[in-house]
């Protein structure tokens, strides 16, 4: 094996810095080869990369609102582009300009450049709430139509949902877990070596009809 990898794949080499300078973007301080692209510049850089033969593999939506380090904006979209022939990879980090009402900002769509941006941007829109202006078909893609909000935002709860039983009872996750430490009977009815056997014993504490308040 004597083949050498393209030096521009490694963000630490001078060739990588040259390449980014050629594209007219700043390198980002990251373990992966990342370029910091201003939102207004995105289409120009994308067109350059496309002309070079790159393909768009993925778009990652990030919500930095609870991140330890301070970031320039709350939302950020990373476009993962890859060259199918010399195997260079580049992440285009685009910070989404914060919108006034905090509803997630707007970015230009990459659909005119790469057709694969179609679904990828729809996914980011659906799960993160970043709007891509000019996208031909910006609809929800994964979540149900009646789901409000964008699940991957940090202020969306994971949503441990109570389980509804046929007789109208709910199994609340907190109550369920309470039963596991042996302190209370919980839902399993198991408490410190005794087992609830008789049928006429009161049912374990569950949520009232209608679910959690």
């Amino acid at each position: 094996m004597t083949t050498t990898l393209d030096p521009r794949r490694d963000p630490l080499t001078p060739q990588f810095a040259d390449w980014l300078a050629e594209l007219g973007v700043q390198p980002d301080d990251s373990a992966e080869p990342t370029a910091l692209v201003p939102a207004g510049d995105l289409l120009r850089v994308a067109a350059l990369l496309k002309a070079d033969g790159f393909m768009l593999l993925d778009s990652v939506g990030l919500d930095y609102s609870q991140y330890t380090e301070k970031k320039p904006a709350r939302f950020c979209v990373l476009h993962n582009v890859f060259h199918p022939h010399d195997h260079r990879r580049l992440f285009l980090r685009v910070y989404v300009p914060d919108s006034v009402d905090g509803s997630g900002g707007e970015l230009p769509t990459l659909y005119p450049v790469w057709k694969s941006a179609n679904y990828l941007e729809r996914e980011v829109y659906d799960l993160m709430g970043v709007v891509f202006s000019g996208h031909p078909d910006l609809r929800k893609v994964l979540t149900p139509d009646d789901l409000e909000g964008h699940p991957l935002r940090k202020d969306f709860p994971v949503g441990e949902t109570p389980t509804l039983f046929r007789d109208g009872r709910f199994l609340d996750p907190a109550t369920f877990r309470a039963g596991m430490n042996g302190q209370s009977a919980g839902l399993s009815g198991y408490k410190g070596g005794q087992r609830r056997g008789e049928m006429n014993e009161p049912l374990p504490p569950v949520m009232p009809e209608g679910g959690p308040k």
Partner: peptide
Amino acid sequence: MGYLHTGFEK
């Protein structure tokens, strides 16, 4: 799509 959306990433 989305009929099997399971919320892995969350």
